[in-house]
């Protein structure tokens, strides 16, 4: 029989419940904001460089209520979305081809490695020169980032298809095309879905960085403008706004992922 003392400690060991954790999380936020506000108000922090939460909140409210920010936000999201879609489609096509045609993979392996090792944000200036200051240059940058993530995941997904599943569907008389449709692609999809967070994040980073370097619209542009006139409040407001949007998108993706991968054990 189990030792009653051990059982008691095992079952009554205190673990903070959800509401407690939430309260602590909110508490931390309030505390740091109040601290920041106080330090800025008392001159401990230079308002010029660090701004104040109250100023930032007012600025964000101005942007939202005047409607000024929507055009920029919309531009950034469109760029990210386009980069995400194009990058994913290209990544799937190339990943599929490389995984099925061994020779291609063997020949291009070193080049892919080099391209992957390259910090791709560095391509932004080139793309600005090639595609101009409009959205095309940002989409191009995003595509290169998203492509690599999706490409590698697709490649891996196809190469690691369970051979038993493959043989089973082959025995059901599937053609090569049907194998692709019923086994290879769904198998790769699980890898692609699990990389959604990363690739969407990359698409947004590319959009904002691209705008920051040169554009006439977008959140990155707003931040760059604010920086140009030493408007720290504007920079912070832009930063926080972007974070909130990314957070929202992330939550949506998580839901989508949970739905699409619901067939997984424990998923």
């Amino acid at each position: 029989m189990a030792d009653p003392v051990t059982v008691a400690t095992a079952t009554t060991r205190r673990e903070a419940g959800r509401p407690v954790i939430l309260a602590m999380q909110v508490g931390f936020f309030v505390l740091s904001m109040v601290g920041w506000e106080l330090m800025s108000s008392t001159g401990l922090l230079d308002v010029f460089f660090f701004s104040k939460p109250s100023l930032i909140a007012v600025r964000m409210w101005d942007w939202l209520s005047s409607g000024f920010i929507y055009e920029h936000l919309f531009t950034t999201l469109i760029e990210a979305l386009l980069a995400f879609i194009i990058g994913t489609v290209l990544g799937v096509i190339f990943g599929l081809t490389f995984a099925r045609v061994r020779l291609l993979a063997a020949v291009f392996n070193p080049y892919i490695r080099v391209f992957n090792a390259l910090p791709r944000v560095i391509l932004a200036p080139i793309f600005l020169l090639w595609f101009g200051l409009g959205i095309a240059s940002k989409v191009a940058l995003g595509v290169t980032l998203v492509f690599m993530v999706v490409f590698f995941n697709t490649y891996q997904g196809i190469r690691e298809v369970n051979p038993v599943l493959l043989n089973n569907v082959r025995m059901l008389q599937a053609s090569q095309r049907q194998l692709l449709r019923y086994v290879y692609l769904p198998s790769a999809m699980t890898w692609i879905f699990s990389s959604l967070h990363t690739s969407i994040g990359f698409a947004l980073v590319a959009a904002v960085v691209g705008e920051y370097l040169g554009s006439a619209r977008g959140v990155g542009f707003v931040v760059a403008q604010a920086e140009g006139v030493f408007d720290t409040t504007g920079v912070f407001a832009g930063l926080i706004l972007t974070s909130v949007v990314v957070l929202g998108i992330d939550l949506l993706i998580e839901r989508l992922e949970n739905y699409l991968l619901r067939w997984r054990p424990g998923g």
Binding site: N168, M171, M189
Partner: peptide
Amino acid sequence: INQHAAYLFQQDALLPWR
């Protein structure tokens, strides 16, 4: 592939996503 045969595998061979 043998057109007349069906195969029951030792391992799980159902497609997990269907």
